[in-house]
C-alpha cells in the first residue's frame, strides 16, 4: 500500500483527566498524523476510551491542550468536534435502535443538511433536494459496506457484527477527516474481523481518513496500524511503530506482568 502520511493534524499535549479523585488520564501527550492509522492499546481500564472521549469533546480534561488542524482548544462540545470532521464509533454500539439502517446512516450526515424544520414540514425545494442528494451519498456508503439487503431493517433487529458495520457507516456518512474507532472488532468472529479490517483499510486508503483505533486484538493492531500508543493506568507507557512497541519492556510488563 502506498500511503502518504502527512503532517501532524491532532496534537495532544499533557492531557490529564480526573473524575473526582480517580485519575483517568495523567499527563498524556501524543500526536496523530494525517492519513495514518494510529492505534491506542492497553489493558482494561487503561483510559483508552476516555482518551477518545477527550478527543471528540465528550469529556473535558482538567489539564492539557488539544491542537486539531492548528487550532488550539481547551474545551469544546461534541457537536463542535463533529462539525470539524471528527466522527466516531462506540465500544458498546450506540446506534439509534428504533430507526432503520438507512435512517441511522442518514442521521450521520445531519451536520451537512441545512434545511430547517419549517422547510421540512412543508417539504419545500431545499428540504426535498437535500433528502435526495444525501440519500445518494448514503447509498454509496451502503454499497461500500455491503449492507444493501438490510437498509430498511430497524437496527435493533440486526446481529451484532452487522450493527458494528452500520455504526461505521453512520460515522463515515459525515465524510470525516478523522475517524475514532472504539474496539470496532470486539466480539466478532474471524471472518467479521477480516471484513472490518478491510473496511478500515479501505476507508483509510480511498477516503483518506485519519484513523484513531482502539483494539484488543494484537494481531490486527500490529497488522494495520502505522503507529501505536500504549496506555496503562491512565499513563502513556509506549509510543512508536508496532515493532518498537512490541519489544518495549514496559509494554510487555503491563500486558504479561513482571518478568520472572
Amino acid at each position: 500500500m502506498s500511503k502518504k502520511i502527512g503532517d501532524v493534524i491532532l496534537d495532544l499535549q499533557n492531557i490529564s483527566l480526573r473524575f473526582g479523585g480517580v485519575k483517568a488520564l495523567t499527563d498524556i501527550s501524543f500526536d496523530v498524523r494525517e492519513h495514518e492509522i494510529r492505534a491506542i492499546i492497553g489493558p482494561n481500564g487503561a483510559g483508552k476510551s476516555s482518551m477518545l472521549n477527550v478527543i471528540n469533546g465528550v469529556y473535558h480534561p482538567q489539564e492539557g491542550v488539544i491542537v486539531f488542524r492548528g487550532q488550539e482548544r481547551k474545551r469544546m462540545e461534541p457537536h463542535h468536534a463533529a462539525t470539524q470532521g471528527i466522527a466516531r464509533t462506540f465500544q458498546n454500539i450506540a446506534l439509534f435502535k428504533g430507526m432503520s439502517v438507512l435512517d441511522n446512516i442518514m442521521t450521520g450526515r445531519i451536520t451537512r443538511m441545512k434545511a430547517n424544520f419549517l422547510e421540512h414540514a412543508l417539504w419545500l425545494g431545499r428540504a426535498r433536494r437535500e433528502e435526495l442528494e444525501h440519500r445518494k451519498k448514503v447509498e454509496e456508503i451502503i454499497d461500500f459496506l455491503e449492507i444493501q439487503h438490510i437498509r430498511r431493517t430497524p437496527v435493533g433487529r440486526l446481529p451484532y457484527g452487522l450493527q458494528k458495520r452500520v455504526e461505521l457507516g453512520r460515522a463515515l456518512a459525515a465524510e470525516p477527516s478523522m475517524l475514532l474507532l472504539d474496539e470496532p472488532m470486539a466480539g466478532m468472529n474471524v471472518e467479521e474481523k477480516q471484513d472490518m479490517c478491510r473496511f478500515i483499510l479501505d476507508v483509510n486508503d480511498q477516503f483518506g481518513a485519519t484513523i484513531v483505533l482502539i483494539e484488543h486484538d494484537m494481531g490486527v493492531v500490529m497488522d494495520i496500524s502505522d503507529r501505536v500508543v500504549v496506555l496503562d493506568y491512565g499513563k502513556k507507557i509506549g509510543d512508536g511503530l508496532p515493532d518498537e512497541v512490541k519489544n518495549n519492556e514496559d509494554v510487555i510488563t503491563a500486558y504479561l506482568g513482571a518478568s520472572h
Binding site: N56, V58, H79, A82, A87, M99, T107, T111, H120, A174
Partner: peptide
C-alpha cells in the same frame, strides 16, 4: 408532521430519543 418526522428534523428527534450521547457526537 409526517414530513417533519421523515426528514432530518425527525431523525434528529429520534436520535436524541434513542441515544443522546451518540446524537451529540454525530453533531446534533
Amino acid at each position: 408532521a409526517k414530513n417533519m418526522v421523515r426528514s432530518s428534523t425527525g431523525r434528529a428527534w429520534m436520535a436524541v430519543r434513542d441515544m443522546d450521547v451518540a446524537a451529540a457526537v454525530i453533531g446534533i
